[in-house]
Simulated scan of single mutants.
Amino acid sequence: MSREPVYAALTGLVRAITAVQGLRITYRGTENIPRRGGVVLAVNHTGYLDFMQVGLVARQGKRRVRYMMKKELERNPVVGFLMRHCKAIGVDRAAGAESYAAAVQALRDGELVCVYPEATISRSFELKAFKSGAARMALEAGVPIVPVAIWGSQRIMTKDMPKALGRHNFPVHIAVGQTVPPHGTPDELTTALRSGLESALGVAQQGYEHPAGARWVPARLGGSAPTLDEAAVIEADEKARRAKG
Rank of each mutant, 00 (worst) to 15 (best):
V57I: 13
E118Q: 07
R35G: 15
G80C: 01
L41D: 05
D229H: 04
I121V: 13
L82H: 09
G22F: 09
R93E: 12
Q178C: 01
A97F: 03
I234P: 00
N44L: 02
V14P: 03
L165I: 14
Y116C: 07
K62H: 15
A106G: 06
V39I: 15
A102D: 13
K62F: 13
E198Q: 12
A149T: 02
G80E: 02
A225N: 06
C114K: 04
Y116W: 09
N76G: 12
G29F: 05
K163N: 15
V233W: 02
S153A: 12
D92M: 04
M157H: 10
V172P: 03
H45E: 03
T26R: 14
T179P: 09
Y67V: 14
R155A: 05
Y48E: 12
V78N: 09
P77E: 11
P218Q: 01
A225V: 10
E4N: 15
L201S: 09
A129E: 15
S224L: 03
A240D: 10
G22E: 08
A58C: 15
K159Y: 11
I234F: 08
C86S: 12
G177C: 05
R123L: 12
M161Y: 10
V115H: 08
E209P: 00
V217N: 05
A119P: 07
I121K: 01
E72Q: 14
M1W: 07
Q21D: 06
L23S: 08
E209L: 04
E235K: 04
M52C: 11
R24F: 07
V91F: 06
S199C: 01
E111W: 08
G55F: 06
P77C: 10
G177R: 00
T190N: 05
G61M: 10
T18E: 10
A9G: 14
S99W: 06
F170W: 14
R241C: 04
R93H: 13
W151T: 07
A95D: 14
R241D: 13
M1E: 12
L193Q: 05
M137D: 07
I174P: 03
G80I: 01
R36K: 12
P211Y: 07
T18S: 09
M161P: 05
A16S: 14
T191Y: 03
G222P: 11
L82D: 08
T18N: 09
D160G: 02
H45Y: 02
P182V: 10
V79D: 07
M68F: 00
G202V: 11
L107Q: 11
T26G: 09
E111Q: 14
G213F: 03
G245N: 02
I89M: 07
G80F: 00
R35E: 14
Q154Y: 00
E235Q: 10
M83L: 11
V115R: 05
G12N: 07
P117V: 10
R167H: 13
R108H: 09
P77N: 11
W151N: 03
G166W: 11
G152Y: 03
R59I: 01
I174S: 05
P211S: 05
V65L: 13
V54R: 03
L73R: 11
E72N: 14
E118P: 03
F125P: 01
P171I: 06
W216A: 02
L107N: 11
P147A: 00
V6C: 11
L201Q: 08
